[in-house]
Design a protein around this nucleic acid. Structure first.
Length: 515
RNA sequence: GGCAGGGUAGCUCAGCUGGUCAGAGCGCACGACUCAUAAUCGUGAGGUCACGGGUUCGAUCCCCGUCCCUGCUACCA
């Protein structure tokens, strides 16, 4: 059974989950469920990044210990993933003891194999006492920190451990030349190529004044022990989650896919492979950078007040509908827009009117004309037209040409539309009036149920609960998630007893309040 | 500033190497039907293909310029 190890970015424990987090996790969950339907042995890793100065400061402001603070944040994220139906196989937190030990083991391993890769150097920067952090140009205005304009910035110099990233520039360029699909979509690869062409600088591996961190396993020549800086703490989570450095981690590592946001491609495509190569460890097979959700045409941002409450979005039509609309509206390879208006339009046209109503009318007729038992009948020729869409679905979903989840949904939507057209053309309610056309009627209804069953399987990664509900209404036994794509064409519902229940996707109330 | 990608029907977007390339979905209007969640099916809607030049027998798709938008331009996670 092929293994498939995929990961999402670990989220920083300094705020609540928002729609941006949701897009990434839902997408990864869909990919994981899709691979399971292919029969793969899937392992989906998610987690939280809990170290760093911001966490330390925020916790201090609230008067609680950092660990207590991150425990609360982590609980909120976990609760949200449960509400969204995101099912991970493993949830790692960078404050886990094993992770911390793994980070230190990785650093030591690099130091042993490439002693020159870590070296001491002084780091100079403008330090803001208010923020307790070094500030970059973007955060400096008129020589003062934008957050603490009453204080003066101090030019501070400290000795740190540095990682000789610059040394790996040729290696990385060769990597992207030999393996172009290492980072997709292409636009993101081009950005990295541009970055590499500029030349790489070495990066900090440790920092002083960083107490809430994994202790850097090497002491400076002064004897001081510093905290491990973010790169060497966060990125290795994908590796330490496999058990590294303990025996057996190789059975899972390397990861098949890192699903991340486009804002952190650099870290995953430059720093991370360099670290692994320095340690003599295999590289992940691919990094996929998804885009961002824009709200009403504006970029999501807490500061700008442009936001959308996830809980409200889920309550609107349910988690499954939200998952569907989000991935249908936002292309997984780029940015997309999301708004309440759009949400309702999509829900109504795609789910309530097209798909939900198709299921409703088909099952109603089987109950009415066939005593609820799906007739035995050969498939009509037009049914074969679905094959092209099933193929398109897999092309979009299997990753060979990127992870274009929105295209997968488009393909299923075409199948739904075709089934509605077919129903209209055959007019089974007319056939039912003529006993001589009984065979045609049965063939039509059997075809509709068969197509619905297939669509339920294809939609299962996106809407696991609704797909299961439909599966059961159609008379299918067991879990729709237990189906396998390679058996889809042979799926035969003849003899099933349908139980048309409540509508899968009820139309929204006429006077639905907007937001 | 530099690099990269864009500006196509009300909205979201397809249009690969130039000549049925002026399209799809949604919304909207009209018609059909009645199995169904007032759902479905059919038809239609006439958008200077950002703007100005150029190459060509012919350009939305090629070249130049202009305007506008987005991303990247490393120690924020």
């Amino acid at each position: 059974m092929p293994r498939f190890y995929l990961t999402t970015a670990i989220d920083y424990a300094n705020g609540d989950p928002h729609i941006g987090h949701a897009l990434e996790k839902i997408g990864a969950d869909v990919i994981a469920r899709y691979r399971r339907l292919r029969g793969d042995d899937v392992h989906l890793l998610m987690g939280m990044d809990e170290h760093g100065q911001k966490v330390q400061q925020t916790a201090a402001q609230q008067g609680v210990a950092p660990q207590v603070f991150t425990d609360e944040i982590a609980a909120r994220f976990l609760s949200m993933w449960a509400r969204l139906g995101v099912e991970y196989d493993q949830f790692i937190r960078t404050t886990d003891a094993h992770h911390k030990a793994g980070v230190q083991a990785l650093i030591r391993r690099i130091a042993e194999r490439n002693p020159d890769d870590f070296y001491e150097r002084s780091y100079r920067g403008m330090y803001c006492v208010g923020c307790e952090a070094f500030k970059q140009d973007a955060d400096i205005a008129d020589g003062r920190c934008v957050h603490h304009p009453t204080r003066t910035l101090e030019e501070v110099e400290e000795r740190n451990w540095f990682f000789r990233l610059s040394r790996y520039q040729p290696f990385l360029q060769q990597l992207l030349a030999d393996n172009p699909s290492f980072i997709e979509p292409e636009s993101r690869r081009n950005e990295i190529l541009g970055l590499l062409a500029q030349g790489l600088e070495d990066i900090s591996a440790s920092r002083s004044r960083l107490d809430w961190a994994v202790p850097f396993p090497l002491a400076l020549s002064t004897g001081e022990t510093q905290g491990t800086y973010v790169w060497f703490d966060a990125l290795p989570n994908y590796l330490t989650a496999t058990g590294f450095p303990d025996e057996g981690y190789e059975t899972r590592w390397p990861a098949d896919l890192h699903v991340i946001g486009k804002d952190i491609t650099r870290f995953h495509v430059v720093i991370w492979p360099a670290m692994l190569h320095a340690a003599g460890l295999p590289l992940p097979r691919q990094v996929w950078a998804h885009g961002f959700v824009q709200l009403g045409g504006e970029r999501f941002s807490k500061s700008a007040g442009v936001k959308l409450d996830l809980g409200e979005a889920i309550d609107r039509f349910g988690a499954d509908a939200f998952r569907y609309v989000l991935l249908r509206e936002v292309p997984y390879d780029g940015d997309g827009n999301f708004s309440w208006e759009r949400f309702e339009e999509r829900y109504t046209s795609d789910l309530a009117n097209a798909f939900g109503n198709l299921a409703s009318r088909a099952m109603a007729m089987v109950e009415k004309y066939c005593e609820a038992v799906v007739p035995i009948a050969a498939a009509p020729e037009v049914e074969a037209e679905d094959d092209a869409d099933v193929l398109a679905y897999h092309v979009a979903m299997d990753g060979a040409r990127g992870w274009l989840l929105h295209d997968g949904l488009s393909a299923v939507a075409r199948m739904t539309a075709r089934a509605n057209e077919y129903t209209q053309a055959m007019a089974p309610w007319q056939l039912a009036k003529d006993p001589a056309r009984r065979a045609d009627l049965e063939q039509c209804l059997a075809s509709l149920i068969r197509r619905l069953a297939r669509q339920a399987v294809l939609l299962a990664p996106f809407m696991p609960n609704k797909a299961q509900a439909l599966w059961e209404q159609l008379g299918g036994t067991g879990a729709v998630a237990a189906q396998r794509f390679d058996a889809l064409s042979a799926l035969e519902p003849a003899g099933w007893t349908v139980h048309k229940g409540d509508g899968l996707f009820p139309r929204p109330a006429p006077t639905e309040p907007k937001a």
